[in-house]
């Protein structure tokens, strides 16, 4: 998704304005010249200046580009689905991993994603199960990371 420079600039201008307005509310400790809001304000001011430049550039450019230019892949439903799958994978993991547990959720998500990209549901299931289990063992046993167990009862192989 490519935005016109003017649109991009406006977005960053808004962000800079937000930072400056929040920073103005920070309390300056007595006896000090520079409080916690000083640095954010400087950074946001520089950002605003550059963003203004970008807006000007976008408005002045000879060939008036459209406000948003969509990538070629966005017109191909299949590729959109694959791109959305990355997003869905992450959101699903963040929402469900503590409920279901890594050993249930990870193979399911992997299976779905590999199936979608590659086809071959049976081989995909095998790969998904094996690699989820390998990653689980590596993080839990070797690195001692408490991956969420969820509905799976705790066990230890080694």
């Amino acid at each position: 998704m490519r935005f016109n420079d003017a649109v991009l600039g406006a977005a960053f201008l808004a962000l800079a304005a937000f930072i400056i307005s929040s920073a103005s509310g920070f309390h300056v400790p007595p006896g000090q010249k520079f409080g916690p809001g000083f640095f954010p304000t400087i950074v946001a001011s520089v950002m605003a200046a550059a963003a203004l430049g970008l807006v000007a550039k976008g408005l002045l450019s000879r060939h008036r580009a459209r406000l948003v230019e969509l990538d070629a892949w966005l017109s191909r439903p299949r590729l959109v689905l694959q791109g959305a799958a990355v997003f869905g994978f992450l959101v699903a993991y963040a929402l469900l991993s503590e409920v279901l547990g890594f050993l249930v959720l990870a193979p399911l998500l992997l299976w779905g994603f590999i199936w979608l990209l590659w086809g071959r549901p049976l081989v995909a299931l095998l790969i998904a199960a094996a690699s989820s289990f390998a990653i689980h063992q590596f993080f839990v046993q070797v690195l001692l990371v408490p991956l969420p167990w969820g509905i799976v009862p705790y066990f230890k192989l080694f």
């Binding site: 992997l110 590999i114 990653i135 993080f139 990371v145």
Partner: peptide
């Protein structure tokens, strides 16, 4: 097609692991 999903899972677990 197989590699990318596995790497994505690794990204998730890696991000989680630093502070659980």
């Amino acid at each position: 097609e197989v590699l990318m999903p596995v790497i994505l899972l690794f990204c998730v677990v890696g991000s989680f692991a630093i502070e659980n």
